[in-house]
């Protein structure tokens, strides 16, 4: 039995902000009618969380649920809990027009922490971080690749990208967080 590995296990950097690869996270895509009772119940039962509002992410004890598109959620759990959660969701949604897929291994997850986190992200993303309270999620572009970013705390953000570009993302974030590049845009 082999243990799965994330894209850049243990990668850490400290510059204008701290950048870290977050290791394996459980990630499940759920597509379906987000307004339906069936989806709401399935999500509630599997995660304990309600379906979040548009462009919001709700954090719970064991899971977080992110709004990705009008018919798509991303459910975040422990990596070890994915199979169980997928099974729960599939069972609850049997017979519904809904699709559940494990995408944990398809992504890489990074965290950025520090007061300059928004400045560093603004160097890569065409996003207004002034209008970005904790619990906001934004799917966007980080330089030349797709990314989803959410704010977990005042000075902490999580960024998800495709696994194949994990190294690019790492190089990007650590380059933009290099000391000397202080901006002071977001204070």
């Amino acid at each position: 039995m082999s243990e799965p590995v994330s894209a850049l296990p243990g990668a850490r950097y400290a510059g204008l902000v701290k950048v870290a690869e977050a290791g394996l996270r459980g990630m499940i895509v759920l597509r379906g009618d987000l307004a339906s009772k069936a989806v709401a119940k399935a999500v509630k039962d599997a995660t304990g969380m309600p379906v979040p509002e548009t462009r919001r992410i709700a954090f719970g004890k064991e899971a977080a649920v992110a709004w990705m598109a009008p018919d798509e959620l991303l459910i975040l759990t422990d990596h070890a809990a994915v199979a169980k959660t997928v099974a729960k969701l599939e069972k609850a949604l049997a017979g519904e027009f809904a699709t559940v897929a494990d995408v944990s291994d398809a992504r890489a997850v990074f965290t950025l922490t520090g007061v300059q986190a928004r400045d560093v992200l603004a160097k890569a993303c065409p996003v207004d971080f002034a209008d970005f309270p904790v619990g906001t999620i934004r799917r966007t572009r980080a330089a030349q690749v797709a990314a989803a970013i959410w704010r977990t705390e005042e000075d902490a953000f999580t960024l998800v990208c495709f696994r194949s570009v994990a190294r690019y993302m790492w190089d990007l974030l650590t380059t933009l967080a290099r000391p000397g590049g202080e901006v002071g845009l977001y204070r």
Partner: peptide, 8 residues
């Protein structure tokens, strides 16, 4: 539904 699982 279509889900791109290329990198999974």
């Amino acid at each position: 539904h279509v889900v791109n699982l290329t990198e999974q």
